[in-house]
Nucleic acid binder design. Sequence first.
DNA 1: GGCCAGGTGTAAA
DNA 2: TTTACACATGGC
Length: 213
Amino acid sequence: MQLSDSLELYQWLEKQDLLASKPPLWWPSYGTFEVIVGAILTQNSKWEKVESSLANLRENDLLSLEALSVIENDLLMTLITPSGLYKTKARYLKRLAIAITDEFGDFELFCRDVDREWLLEQKGVGPETADSILCYACERAEMVVDAYTARLLNAFGMEYELYEDIQSWCRSGIEDGYEEERFAEVYALFHGMIVEYVKVNSKGKVVTLLPVS
DNA sequence: GGCCAGGTGTAAA
DNA sequence: TTTACACATGGC
């Protein structure tokens, strides 16, 4: 199968009902501060492990900007141990919570005023984490690219490597195919469907493309 | 028991 | 400006 643009890929994925058992816009707790924490914790880790770290934080009433800004470092490390890289992630999380509070005041104002540049200046926030926060926490029209995206495009015979190249390829077809007010929703679903498709249809790093009738 | 997971920062070449 | 390498747990 040959892809002419990302709109075709998006609509091909849509036909496969990949998000039936998922939250409406795929990321759990879409539009909340939890997404920021999840975006850091999921780096080079599996989502199931992130869930147990998030549950640990939630049980202790620590899943908020205010609580994470003042949390004891040892406690934070202990609670997020299940998702790995816990020393660095604990450092990143607390620094980010403090930075958001200092710069924007609260989560709502952060969502309104933050931009990609500011996020990328924060330690521990690279392109994927920044875009995940913008897309799923701030409800912005931002396309998230990750290892799954690259693998799926590879399976279609495309040889993208740069994050921005994949991202602009994904965006261009959507911008032509949908009204602007739907971009935020469509990008959120697009990335989610890619992840779910690759999870189901890959063995190791090889993605199998299944025809959809 | 090695490999991998929804990356990122840093130190060498 | 590119290319290693560290970070770390837990599931397969």
